[in-house]
């Protein structure tokens, strides 16, 4: 009788240890993306680092920032449009990364995406952007990155760089701090006002800037459909519980694609964050 009770105690102890390990694994899974974002924020924005400004890294990080390692493809496209020269290197680099990993950089590396993720944690009333707003980023790319600089030159007041919220944080605010309030002109005031509006919007609606306005997202979004990077979802066990839809930071519906046996990252708005995979209750089956 004593032996039976020992065995049951041993089994219970093993079971509880396995439960603890599962909890630790789940915690690591849920913070893996945050640690990665933090790592790249520090690693790619540091004065000790090398300068690879000839190389475009498709994340929203201003190359004018003294700490930036890479060139911003948007800033390069704006200037090339003004020069009326096709940016072979910049487009080639974005296409190559896009087809290899889709919008993975948006979800795991982009510092402005990281800021949006953090701001959305602030407890306020939340809302989801209507689906049609996701086409806004294509208009921003076509007009403010290509057409306006092409027509009026790279220094036009209507280029995306003049309104870029990442540039406002990385360059405009440090400049204003060092030069004083008196240095604020109309263009700077407009840029800062847009930054405030965007930050207000992302507090209330998750990743709304990525969804509606980001021109880098617009370039990478179509490549999500063909990228070699595929999120593996347990399609055969899906019970349409929609846990993935509730967790999706883009307010998308990955469950529909999982039910159709399509990788959930095959969507324009997907930032390949893998949250749908992590949140799936059947992922271990």
């Amino acid at each position: 009788m004593a032996a039976v009770s020992d065995v049951s105690l041993l089994l219970a102890a093993r079971h509880s240890r396995a439960g603890q390990l599962d909890t630790i694994k789940a915690t690591i899974d849920s913070y893996k993306r945050r640690f990665t974002q933090l790592f790249f924020l520090v690693a790619l924005h540091s004065s000790w680092g090398p300068e690879f400004k000839w190389l475009c890294n498709p994340i929203l990080s201003c190359h004018s920032c003294a700490l930036a390692w890479f060139a911003c493809p948007i800033g390069v496209y704006v200037h090339y449009a003004g020069y009326r020269i096709f940016p072979f290197l910049a487009v080639g680099m974005v296409l190559l990364l896009g087809v290899l990993i889709g919008r993975l950089l948006c979800g795991w590396v982009c510092p402005f995406g990281f800021l949006q993720d953090l701001l959305y944690k602030i407890p306020t009333p939340k809302f989801r952007m209507p689906p049609w707003t996701s086409y806004g980023k294509f208009a921003v790319l076509a007009l403010m990155v290509v057409a306006f600089p092409f027509l009026w030159g790279e220094m036009t007041q209507w280029s995306f760089c003049r309104f870029c919220p990442a540039s406002a944080i990385q360059v405009t605010i440090p400049n204003v701090v060092s030069a004083g309030i008196a240095s604020i002109d109309a263009a700077t005031a407009v840029k800062l006002a847009i930054l405030v509006l965007v930050l207000g919007l992302v507090i209330a609606s998750s990743r709304s800037f990525c969804k509606a306005f980001c021109p880098i997202g617009a370039m990478l979004a179509p490549l999500n459909y063909i990228s070699f990077w595929k999120i593996k979802a347990p399609t055969e066990h899906c019970t349409a519980c929609e846990a993935c839809n509730r967790r999706c930071p883009q307010g998308d519906t990955p469950s529909q694609r999982i039910l159709d046996s399509v990788p959930p990252n095959r969507a324009l708005d997907c930032i390949v964050c893998h949250d749908c995979q992590v949140s799936c209750p059947h992922k271990e089956e």
């Binding site: 400004k53 190389l55 800033g75 200037h79 003004g82 020069y83 072979f88 290197l89």
Partner: peptide
């Protein structure tokens, strides 16, 4: 080179006037 022009584009090191850089 195109790489140098990309670097120039990061700080407006080149401007276009009358069809020339």
């Amino acid at each position: 080179s195109d790489a140098e022009l990309t670097i120039d584009a990061t700080f407006s090191g080149t401007k276009r006037r009358d069809g020339r850089l």
